[in-house]
């Protein structure tokens, strides 16, 4: 029984139908933002955006553009709902999360509109799994109002060099301080924990840095516990772009290449730690 033949007639009832030959192309992107249990799904003709937020300070978005799906049909202008992303990921990985070459899980995803559950059909090696996941009333998603025109500093670099730095961050530090500057040390990540302070410096001429556009020296602090989960996105991505705007808001954008060579983006927004704000002259 293959996905394409089943329930062809019933598809008419769905507002959203999406098919993927390789479910991993979706599950990996969602893993990159999985730091809370609930997520808001927002579907438009362009594709699907999934958002996770915490403490009104940090927001992560995954973009699955329509082009990565083998089939993408949306019968309304948009559809949005809240869903348990932990459960969604378990379902997408129902046949195991190992990355064996050749063993791919095919996915068909359907949503019947407001109040309906999200239905998944997954198939691998002739075995079929169907999942029905309850959807909830979507929450208002924050708008961080981050605009490219307000960007003060921007650095694009390869993700691999930041991976260990992020994985090994001293969690006894409340904050992660990010310094970006046209002068030395150019890019510095610092923590202030029980053992003392730690700095990781990345010079602008390092071969890991692809683009360096810093106009002003800025030092901002962010709650480490909120930013730490972004290491998942870092691990999956090839490149990262780090930007700060005049308010000290941080935008991290991750370029992830999937099994089929397609590029997807994940972004994290984080507002600076309040304590420091008080000292700013604004």
């Amino acid at each position: 029984m293959s996905l394409s033949t089943q329930q062809g007639d019933e598809d008419g009832q769905y507002v959203l139908i999406a098919k993927l030959d390789n479910a991993r192309n979706m599950s990996n992107i969602l893993k990159a933002i999985h730091f809370k249990e609930m997520a808001t799904v927002f579907a438009t003709a362009n594709g699907i955006k999934v958002t996770v937020e915490d403490s009104k300070c940090i927001q992560a978005n995954s973009f699955l553009q329509a082009g990565i799906f083998q089939e993408f049909i949306l019968r309304e202008e948009s559809a949005t709902f809240k869903i348990d992303i932990t459960v969604l990921l378990e379902c997408l990985n129902i046949f195991g999360s190992s990355t064996l070459p050749g063993a791919t899980t095919a996915l068909k995803m359907c949503y019947g509109g407001y109040g309906s559950p999200l239905i998944l059909w997954l198939e691998e090696g002739g075995v079929l799994t169907d999942c029905t996941i309850k959807t909830l009333e979507p929450d208002e998603v924050l708008d961080f109002n981050f605009s490219s025109t307000n960007v003060i500093n921007k650095i694009i670099m390869k993700s691999e060099c930041l991976k260990e730095a992020f994985s090994e961050l001293d969690m006894t530090s409340e904050v992660l301080e990010i310094l970006m500057s046209p002068d030395k040390p150019y890019l510095r990540l610092s923590t202030f924990g029980n053992a003392g302070s730690t700095h990781a410096d990345y010079p602008k001429d390092s071969d890991m840095v692809e683009s360096f556009q810093c106009t002003q020296t800025q030092t901002n602090r962010y709650k480490l516990s909120l930013l730490k989960p972004s290491v998942k996105a870092l691990t999956l991505s090839n490149k990262i772009s780090i930007r700060t705007d005049c308010r000290g808001f941080l935008s991290l954008q991750y370029m992830i290449r999937n099994d089929d060579g397609q590029i997807c983006f994940v972004e994290y927004y984080c507002s600076p730690d309040e304590e420091l704000d008080e000292n700013d002259d604004r």
């Binding site: 379902c91 129902i94 799994t129 169907d130 309850k134």
Partner: peptide
């Protein structure tokens, strides 16, 4: 469960 139901079908 309250949140989800999942069934895997083995045939043949």
């Amino acid at each position: 469960t309250d949140m989800v139901s999942v069934t895997t079908h083995f045939r043949d």
